[in-house]
């Protein structure tokens, strides 16, 4: 089995049993790009093609998610399956500190792989449908408060964070909305 990276069109391919490889990719610290997970020998009889939203400009999305979702008491914890790294939250470097400042490129990568690795088949289906019914993703359901979420309702349909996230799913990041959502963390 090989686990490699590719910049080809957001496709992540591989046997269904290798979905977990997305998680491995996080650990391996793959470069900032869409990933490809493949079976080099081609021995597997079943292949599943997975899609992921673009990594390009994901920084805008991650910055918007950080104050809403990625604080140290929520998804800024290493024990979470959706694990968000960044400034003001969980740091990736062993000598990092939440007070150290800006999110690093490696942290954006790690956050990207964490988010796209949550429900890869469902994410693929949403992307194939051009973002229709994004609430198939627990990421969206929980953030909208439509599924039990200890952090409560973090966004409503059509607000800045919602538009930021859902626009990313269809490949056209709503920059202004992401930027507005990223400002949320400041003390009112």
């Amino acid at each position: 089995m090989t686990v490699g990276a590719s910049t080809r069109g957001g496709r992540v391919t591989g046997p269904s049993s290798l979905v977990i490889g997305l998680g491995l990719a996080v650990v391996a610290g793959l470069p900032a790009c869409e990933g490809q997970i493949g079976d080099a020998g081609g021995r597997s009889g079943v292949r599943l093609e997975l899609l992921a939203p673009t990594r390009t400009n994901f920084e805008r999305v991650a910055d918007a998610m950080q104050p809403h979702c990625g604080t140290l008491d929520c998804h800024g914890q290493a024990g979470r399956n959706m694990r968000l790294f960044g400034g003001r939250g969980l740091r990736l470097a062993p000598d990092g500190n939440p007070l150290d400042g800006d999110t690093t490129p490696a942290e954006y990568d790690a956050t990207f792989w964490s988010v796209v690795g949550l429900e890869p088949e469902t994410l693929t289906a949403v992307i194939q449908d051009q973002g229709a019914d994004p609430e198939r993703l627990s990421l969206i359901r929980k953030a909208r408060g439509h599924e039990r979420h200890k952090g409560g309702t973090l966004m409503n349909v059509g607000d800045d964070l919602d538009r930021c996230l859902t626009s990313w799913l269809v490949g056209g990041i709503a920059e202004a909305q992401c930027q507005a959502a990223a400002m949320y963390g400041e003390t009112p």
Binding site: T71, L72, D73, A78, L90, D95, N97, G185
Partner: peptide, 21 residues
Amino acid sequence: GSPVHRERSCAACHFNPAGPR
């Protein structure tokens, strides 16, 4: 530097020594 979303004890997130978490 960030809002509190669910934790009611400061020390659940703020403990020594400072580090990535």
